[in-house]
């Protein structure tokens, strides 16, 4: 992928990521998040990680965000639009973020591996999905199964906490 595409998609992500926070309207925030996810998916694809990129679009930008939008539209969020920005907190947040950025840049400045060009990945004979599946069911089987338990607990919790009271 030509470098200018990387910069295009990266800045798309950053701009819309900021828009998620800055927008007062929840629907606009959610839609900005969708665009930000699309930029991320494009970056994944540029790294030859097609499966992760497509999952990013289908699951996050598609399913999860549609659910978000439904819920936002069902709730009455007028109060959110009228809220003012707390400038003290915003300044504090910006200062902390700036310190982190400066720190990261100073580390990257000394980072040798960041300057050299790596050879491109060798073409694999099998496709992405096959590779990920093989890894999940061989080397990473244990964490994969624990994720199953995790989803079970999350399901119990969601059913329990969102249950309606009988009238």
């Amino acid at each position: 992928m030509p470098p200018f595409l990387f910069w295009l998609f990266a800045s798309l992500m950053l701009v819309f990521g900021a828009a998620v926070v800055l927008n007062r309207n929840p629907v606009a925030s959610a839609l900005s998040l969708v665009v930000s996810f699309l930029g991320l998916a494009a970056l994944f694809m540029s790294l030859d990680a097609y499966f992760v990129g497509i999952i990013q679009v289908l699951v996050y930008a598609g399913a999860v965000m549609v659910l978000f939008l439904f819920i936002i539209m069902l709730l009455n969020l007028r109060a959110e639009e009228g809220r003012r920005i707390n400038w003290l907190a915003a300044t504090g947040g910006i200062v902390v973020a700036l310190i982190l950025v400066i720190q990261i840049f100073s580390v990257i400045g000394h980072f040798q591996a960041a300057r050299q060009t790596f050879p491109s990945l060798e073409r694999s004979t099998t496709d992405d999905v096959w590779n990920i599946g093989a890894l999940l069911f061989s080397n990473y089987n244990l964490p994969f199964q624990i994720v199953g338990v995790l989803v079970l607990v999350a399901t119990i919790g969601v059913v329990l906490l969102s249950k309606r009271e009988p009238r």
Binding site: P143, I146, V149, V153, A154, G157, L160
Partner: peptide
């Protein structure tokens, strides 16, 4: 990471 999340998510509930 995975087991820490198992602990944390059950604590959310």
């Amino acid at each position: 990471f995975v087991s820490l999340e198992l602990v944390t998510i059950s604590f959310y509930v």
